[in-house]
């Protein structure tokens, strides 16, 4: 993807993602969140053929179900009684609240998925290495650790399983103890290897002077234009939140989840913001089709 969304200036892209995170956190309306999820899924399919979704769908589904089930069991405030579960009232408000929380978290994760594709390590360093070199280095190492940790835990589990130590069998206490021991080896091991990474960075002169760029990122006119659009739609969305139009009111009175009047306007604005990358990729796709059609 040399063109498309990733070809824009890292600063523009980064600000877009910051905005996107804020909007999905503020926008507490199930209709809006559900549409956003769809937009983000389509974008992920275009970006990496759904690779991230396939890898993580299990975790995502668990998360949603967790909130969907747990919130009604804990939260009993509201006026619309659905049914009783073991003598506990299950409220419509709580179900909707659970849905909103789950969807909102899912949106956050999907935005991160897309962020990881667009803001690569070198763009991240470009943005922050000059302002905060030490912090940028630390963040880089930490981010590198996330997928590594996953792989390493699997490996530790494999090896320890051979000794009969496992987190999957035994009493709960024993399992928790084993789990903590695993995390302890994981940290010891990773710290040691982290030192090697730091050595390799130092050996190649990291931090000696101002870094230059292999890929020159020039802030061009199109970056400026996109930034203006981003700021415009972001401000409107925030206004929508402030006016209460992007939020479904639950307490004290449950609002109708159907959109009406002004809410439609802000719904469209918010969704357009979330769909900016999709529009840009879509344009590339149309152009490509059109070009093929001409020959």
């Amino acid at each position: 993807m040399k063109r498309g969304f990733s070809s824009f200036h890292p600063l523009t892209c980064f600000l877009y993602y910051v905005g996107a995170l804020v909007i999905v956190m503020l926008g507490q309306h199930p209709a809006f969140l559900l549409s956003t999820v769809l937009v983000l899924i389509v974008f992920n399919i275009i970006q990496e053929k759904g690779g991230g979704l396939i890898r993580w769908w299990g975790a995502y589904a668990t998360l949603i179900i967790f909130f969907l089930v747990l919130t009604p069991l804990i939260n009993h405030r509201g006026t619309h009684l659905l049914f009783y579960f073991r003598d506990n009232p299950v409220m419509l408000e709580a179900v909707i609240q659970g849905m909103i929380t789950g969807l909102s978290l899912l949106c956050l994760l999907l935005v991160f998925l897309s962020y990881n594709q667009i803001i690569t390590a070198d763009k991240f360093l470009f943005l922050f290495a000059r302002v905060l070199p030490q912090w940028a280095l630390l963040t880089m190492l930490a981010m590198r650790f996330v997928p590594l940790f996953r792989r390493r835990l699997v490996e530790i589990d494999r090896v320890q399983q051979s000794k009969g130590v496992s987190v999957k069998t035994g009493s709960l206490k024993q399992r928790i103890k084993n789990g903590l021991l695993f995390v302890q080896i994981l940290l010891t091991w990773s710290l040691e290897e982290g030192i090697q990474t730091a050595d390799s960075m130092k050996a190649r002169g990291y931090g000696l002077k101002k870094r230059s760029r292999y890929t020159p990122y020039h802030f061009q006119l199109k970056d400026g234009l996109l930034l203006v659009i981003i700021i415009l739609f972001f401000s409107l969305s925030v206004a929508g939140w402030a006016l209460g139009d992007l939020v479904l009111e639950i307490q004290p009175m449950l609002e109708s989840p159907l959109l009406s009047g002004r809410e439609w306007f802000f719904y469209v604005v918010g969704l357009l913001y979330m769909g900016i990358p999709l529009c840009i990729e879509g344009r590339e796709w149309v152009l490509w089709r059109f070009w093929r059609y001409k020959i």
Binding site: T120, A121, D122, M140, R144, E193, G194, Q196, T197, S200, M201, R204, G205, Y206, G207, L208, K209, R211, S212, R213, Y214
Partner: peptide
Amino acid sequence: NQIVMDRVLEELVFGLENL
């Protein structure tokens, strides 16, 4: 453990950029 960046090209130029 010596690798810092996540793509080959970025890793190759890491030292050059530092200097």
